[in-house]
Design a protein around this nucleic acid. Structure first.
Length: 271
DNA sequence: CATCAGGTGAAGT
DNA sequence: ACTTCACCTGAT
């Protein structure tokens, strides 16, 4: 039914609204409805506690849904080392300070892949609108008129002309076909002995998936925190004089976190 | 009406 | 290897 998580240095609003995921809605002040795969939850933060309400019928002990959402929200993550790593660079210190509490979510690779294919050369409100239309058209119905993210098979057998995907439609349909047929195995590329580079390389074999989208999927879908997606905002920032000797590799498995901090700083400060 | 928005692939240097 | 350009669509 619901659970509470004690969190340290977590910011639910920043985490959800930083553009890393698209299926959230603030239904009441401070209450966020979050949808992932075929699951819905309502999350609210009060100081160092996050309350998560799920649609489960009864609460016997810790449910699978609890575990799913704890992992999803990244409650257990800790990026404290990043504060030390950026010391000395005033700009990065400001960026990290601005984003304290923002975590990288652990999303579903399939949903993440399709979402970020759709995101290319597109703006956030329209991305969200496209995804909702896609779910309504192909996903299975859940409670209160909400729809699950469509499975690969569901996406394959859909006419998605009404979704407004534009030229991305072919990319989405092809990805759905490849995954549904088992030609492209999302779970396999994230297997135990695969690494970040291999994941990006594999993802880039899909039509419509280039370095930017592949790195987003690696970061948000596969939990590769060393992934460093470079979009127009990040590229602009990398051109700033204070970033002249910046190398993402220097930040190891916090590079992706810093990337998201830079991105969120950029879109909220007109960079 | 022209331009633009969280890129990519193809074709041209 | 690097540069240019078309691409769907909805918003301004």
């Amino acid at each position: 039914m619901s659970f509470s998580a004690r969190v340290y240095n977590y910011d639910l609003k920043k985490t959800l609204e930083s553009g890393q995921m698209f299926r959230y809605k603030e239904v009441q002040s401070g209450v966020y409805r979050v949808i992932s795969r075929d699951k819905v939850c309502y999350a609210k933060q009060v100081e160092d506690t996050i309350m998560v309400r799920t649609g489960e019928e009864k609460q016997t002990s810790v449910t699978d849904a609890d575990i799913y959402w704890r992992t999803y929200f990244g409650f257990g993550q800790n990026y404290e080392r990043l504060i030390e790593l950026v010391k000395g660079n005033k700009f990065l210190e400001k960026v990290v300070g601005y984003n304290l509490g923002l975590r990288i979510l652990k999303q579903d690779p399939w949903e993440c892949l399709i979402s970020f294919i759709i995101s290319q050369k597109n703006n956030i409100p329209h991305i969200m609108q496209c995804i909702e239309k896609l779910c309504a058209a192909a996903g299975s119905a859940m409670e209160e008129g909400l729809f699950a993210f469509p499975t690969p098979k569901e996406l394959c057998s859909l006419s998605i002309d009404k979704v407004g995907l534009g030229y991305r439609k072919a990319y989405v349909l092809n990805a759905a076909y490849q995954v549904d047929m088992g030609y492209f195995q999302l779970d396999k590329i994230g297997g135990i002995n695969r690494n970040y580079k291999a994941i990006v390389q594999e993802l880039c074999t899909l039509n419509g998936v280039g370095p930017k989208v592949a790195n987003c999927v690696a970061l948000f879908g596969y939990g590769c925190l060393e992934a460093f997606p470079i979009d127009v905002h990040i590229a602009r920032i990398l051109g700033l004089p204070e970033m002249s000797d910046f190398k993402s590799k220097d930040y190891g498995d916090l590079a992706g976190v810093l990337q998201q901090y830079l991105f969120n700083y950029a879109i909220n400060n007109g960079l």
